[in-house]
């Protein structure tokens, strides 16, 4: 007999796979429905019918849509994302090569931001729950709600204006590359990381705060207090474990956002990440790259939400044994 947890995880994974399959169909059909013929778009004005036909058969565009779809998805499962339309005879350019280094950059940005923002906002959330109603609580809430209420590019420009243009402490561009030293890399990433942190901190903090406040009203917390546990112990040992589910959920949503939603920040800071790549590919109509980016975004979103569900379920026995 499978444990309920394993069963839940497996069923969630299957559901996630199904969602991804549905998303891949949507991506493929949307891109196919875009106006224009990509062969003529790439070959340009004086493309003769023969060169267009040759180009299409080289790209496999002459095959039925279903065949192309399964070829594409099949390749994706094996990690083969196909060739970019910018490939030249003698110089194949694989989508995987183009996307992988950019994806790494985005994951780095998202990872660093998460490492700073998640603990920071959880701690702030716990503190403002503990000291709710105090000036501290109001200030933290006010500031974080302000930063989440203005668009990200605006925060970015404000930071650039003061920290980069006026004070000249930091560079306006975050054009990181592999050959760069650690210190230089860190310096370049301060502004985009701060912008993203300011953008997500309110979500997590407010969710932590309300989850903890909800739990703090429970009788067993009174019990803990009555038996003489210290406030820190009450929070960390008794309250927090029961508040993990909603917190994990909001953290996951925000992590997914960090991967898929950073297009604006990447553009403003010229950070060579995957969002920037996708925008560039849309501009140059490099369809295989666009499709790959979209599918990667979808996968990241689904995976992280899956993870949040699993954490929420595994920390909450009630959900493990649904009636």
């Amino acid at each position: 007999m499978m444990s309920p947890l394993v069963r839940t995880i497996i069923s969630r994974l299957l559901l996630g796979g199904l969602t991804l399959a549905a998303v891949s169909v949507i991506i493929f059909s949307t891109v196919s429905m875009l106006p224009g013929n990509f062969a003529t778009a790439i070959l340009g004005q004086s493309a003769t019918p023969e060169t267009v036909a040759a180009f299409e058969s080289h790209l496999g565009l002459d095959q039925p849509a279903a065949t192309r779809y399964f070829k594409w998805v099949g390749g994706f499962l094996y990690g083969d994302l196909g060739e970019s339309l910018s490939s030249n005879p003698g110089e194949p350019r694989f989508v995987a090569d183009i996307v992988s280094s950019r994806l790494r950059n985005t994951l780095l940005l998202a990872g660093v931001t998460a490492l700073i923002a998640v603990p920071l906002s959880i701690v702030l959330g716990v503190l403002s729950a503990l000291y709710r109603g105090t000036t501290f609580d109001r200030v933290v809430n006010g500031v974080s709600l302000t930063t989440i209420s203005v668009p990200e590019f605006f925060i970015a420009y404000i930071l650039i204006l003061f920290l980069a243009v006026r004070l000249r402490w930091l560079p306006t561009l975050s054009n990181v590359n592999d050959g760069m030293g650690f210190v230089e890399g860190v310096r370049l990433m301060i502004l985009p990381v701060s912008t993203l942190t300011l953008g997500i901190i309110a979500h997590i903090m407010r969710m932590t705060r309300s989850a903890i406040i909800g739990v703090l009203a429970s009788p067993y917390i009174h019990m803990a207090k009555c038996k003489g546990a210290s406030p820190a112990r009450v929070i960390l040992r008794h309250a927090l474990p029961n508040a993990w589910a909603p917190i994990a959920n909001v953290v996951a949503v925000n992590l997914a956002y960090l991967v898929v939603g950073v297009v604006v920040v990447e553009t403003v800071f010229v950070y060579p990440g995957i969002g920037h790549t996708m925008v560039d590919a849309v501009r140059t109509r490099d369809i295989p790259v666009v499709q790959a980016c979209a599918l990667i975004f979808a996968s990241a979103y689904i995976l992280l939400n899956l993870l949040a569900d699993i954490i929420a379920i595994s920390t909450n026995p009630k959900l493990l044994h649904p009636r």
């Binding site: 243009v165 561009l173 054009n175 553009t267 010229v270």
Partner: peptide, 15 residues
Amino acid sequence: NVISDVVARTNALVT
């Protein structure tokens, strides 16, 4: 450096 965004390009020049 490729800086497609004109505002980012201007910032880079100003700084």
